[in-house]
Design a protein around this nucleic acid. Structure first.
Ligand SMILES: [Mn+2]
Ligand SMILES: [Mn+2]
Ligand SMILES: [Mn+2]
Ligand SMILES: [Mn+2]
Lengths: 198, 198
DNA sequence: GCTAATATTTCGGTGTGCCGAAATTCGCGG
DNA sequence: CCGCGAATTTCGGCACACCGAAATATTAGC
């Protein structure tokens, strides 16, 4: 049906609007995928033909209903696999992303669901990202960026983009559900941590 | 280094000589891979350039030392994954092949070794095929095709090529280590089962 | 409003792995 | 040895996903 390439495109498009509002531009999409802008323009045209994204020339890129469904399927796969690597194989939270990036395209639905059951249907992954359910519904916790929460709060989500930062934060006790204040941390951390304000 | 396509070629070339003597021809290789003969000819030429295979035009195809090492690596992956699916996820022996065919290209070495440890370093897969060790050594059990063993013997290996046959055999009690006689079984079974003669 | 910087698309081209058809080589029967 | 059918290779071509350079559209500064 759709291969790994299409799966990665829609996943990145989805991820961009998950914790921020603005839809993604083709330049930003190219940067995140590590591709030339021209490659992305062409691929987005194909995705549009397939009905997965809507895009007028020079405009932003948005997922259609079908595109969102596929993206949620991939997000579920990615996050379940990350969770499984941590829980079952004692990976640390900074080591799981690359492996999940590959396995998300390879496991059968049957195996993925078996893993989901074995884990007890977890609601969030090691970084606090919510895991879509089998039918594609997802509950995004209420949270604000630590940079925008002067009083701090309980850690709800940490971006898994920078493994080095994850290692440093863990060593300083900044893990899911810990209480943090913005004054304790550097600029990159402030822009990577989401907190629930009491 | 090498992608899934190369991995599948060397794996099939290796598998052909594992339980029989003759090296594989390009026509047979094409048939097993489900490809046109012309595609195989061209790919074999590339494998030869990469030093994985030796092949003079119109001759048979044989793995070099490097090619054998890569093939053993893939065979180990395939068989460990099959074993894991059966032991850990209760797949039956006729269901594991297709999933392993994909996962063998996707798991990291780290994850594969973790699975190997979890399984207790199994020596054979669900079909009795020996699993190469981490360093690439493999012990092929002494066995003869049931068709060539008039007195029968203990089942040591059953080809996993035909899932329907596997299901039928299991329902009739023909599993690894069972004692069978050739008279009890049909022609295809006789050509799929290897036995150790007491 | 105009212009210059920037974002985006278009265009010609590449590498990989595949195909069918045509050409070549092999090997067997006589 | 010769010729014929089967195996194998060669050849032109295709789909996919990518690239850099050039063209074009947008936007921001003035
Ligand atoms: Mn991740
Ligand atoms: Mn994550
Ligand atoms: Mn198999
Ligand atoms: Mn097997």
């Amino acid at each position: 049906m759709t291969g790994p390439v299409v799966e990665d495109y829609v996943k990145v498009i989805y991820a961009h609007t998950e914790w921020q509002a603005e839809p993604i531009t083709s330049t930003a999409l190219a940067a995140r995928l590590g591709l030339a802008a021209s490659s992305v323009t062409e691929m987005v045209k194909k995705l549009s033909t397939q009905g997965l994204v809507s895009h007028e020339p020079y405009g932003a890129i948005e997922l259609t209903r079908d595109g969102t469904a596929l993206a949620l399927r991939m997000v579920r796969r990615h996050r379940l696999i990350e969770t499984w690597l941590v829980q079952h194989f004692a990976y640390s939270w900074d080591e799981v992303h690359d492996e999940a990036e590959i396995l998300e395209h390879a496991l059968s639905d049957r195996l993925l669901d078996a893993i989901d059951d074995e884990l007890g249907r977890p609601a969030r992954d090691p970084h606090g990202d919510p895991i879509p359910s089998r039918d594609g519904s997802i509950v995004r916790p209420d949270a604000v960026l630590l940079a925008d929460a002067p009083a701090g709060g309980r850690v709800v989500r940490i971006s898994d983009r920078n493994p080095a930062l994850l290692r440093e934060l863990e060593s300083r006790g900044v893990v899911l559900d810990a209480i943090v204040r913005p004054g304790d941390l550097g600029a990159e951390a402030l822009a990577s941590i989401w907190v629930a304000t009491a």
